[in-house]
Design a binder for these strands. Structure first.
Ligand SMILES: [Mn+2]
Ligand SMILES: [Mn+2]
Ligand SMILES: [Zn+2]
Ligand SMILES: [Zn+2]
Lengths: 133, 133
DNA sequence: TGTATTATTGATAACGAATCTCATTACTGT
DNA sequence: ACAGTAATGAGATTCGTTATCAATAATACA
């Protein structure tokens, strides 16, 4: 049976107190910095579990790293992510869902799923970038 | 200046004679199997170059591995990919392009780009899977 | 409450994709 | 032909992630 440990709870909370997507490594650093002696492997395991259970969203960064975020919405949705600061907006788009489904079936594909992420610079980071040069 | 080598040409050709997306490692294996003594690092470099020059499409597999494919279309497009055999269909969808752009700007995001891939089982692999069980 | 069971943990090793190093090779323009 | 230098490739290295496995601790139950 599944057991409750302070480690899983610590990961859940650290994830929840974070605005955007974070990597397992960075979350582990954060936890360590706050005095938690949690192990890296445990963070990886907890995040994978949370993702399976639907308590966390996960995606691959453009560089191929796995990133996680506390999932607030229960239903299927996508994300608009700031490349600079990680700020994330959850977005729903039935039109895109229908499109993906029909594109697949039109070509005889079954068991279709899709990856839809929008990346950009959030308003704040856009200003900062302009000032920097 | 850029130089022409048989290695780059070999990668271009191997990529072109392949139906779907392939990893650098698998393309390197293929080349080696046909007797080519090309180095792995060279395959990685050639694929990266082809992608920059628009001669190859690239995407991250669901597991985070970089995959490449000879690019036939010049314009921006997306892909419908078979999870089992890699068979790929190029798809255009202006509606999705506009949607991504507007979602970003509605939330004050700039310099938006997007990742849109549809994965599934192609017709042939669907049949094989059904027979297997 | 004590105890047996066993899921979980975590330090470490191992793995795999991708990149870097750098001596050697071989395009290219002259 | 030759000099200049971009490209190559074997091997080392980096880095994210997973596997190992002995130690730990959560849970069920006597
Ligand atoms: Mn969707
Ligand atoms: Mn697009
Ligand atoms: Zn930002
Ligand atoms: Zn297939």
């Amino acid at each position: 049976m599944k057991r409750n440990t302070w480690q899983r709870e610590a990961v859940r909370e650290a994830l929840g107190s974070n605005e955007g997507f974070v990597s397992a490594q960075s979350l582990h650093s954060t936890l360590r910095d706050t005095g938690s002696p949690i192990g890296l492997a445990t963070v990886y395991r907890a995040l994978a579990d949370l993702a399976v259970e639907g308590e966390a969203d996960s995606l691959q960064s453009l560089e191929g790293e796995s990133l996680y975020r506390a999932c607030t919405q229960g239903q299927h949705h996508h994300h608009l992510i700031c490349r600079n600061c990680g700020l994330t907006v959850e977005i729903e788009a039935d039109a895109v869902e229908l499109w993906a489904q029909s594109v697949a079936s039109e070509h005889g594909f079954t068991q279709a799923n899709h990856v839809v992420d929008v990346f950009g610079l959030c308003a704040e980071c856009t200003v900062q970038t302009r000032l920097a040069r």
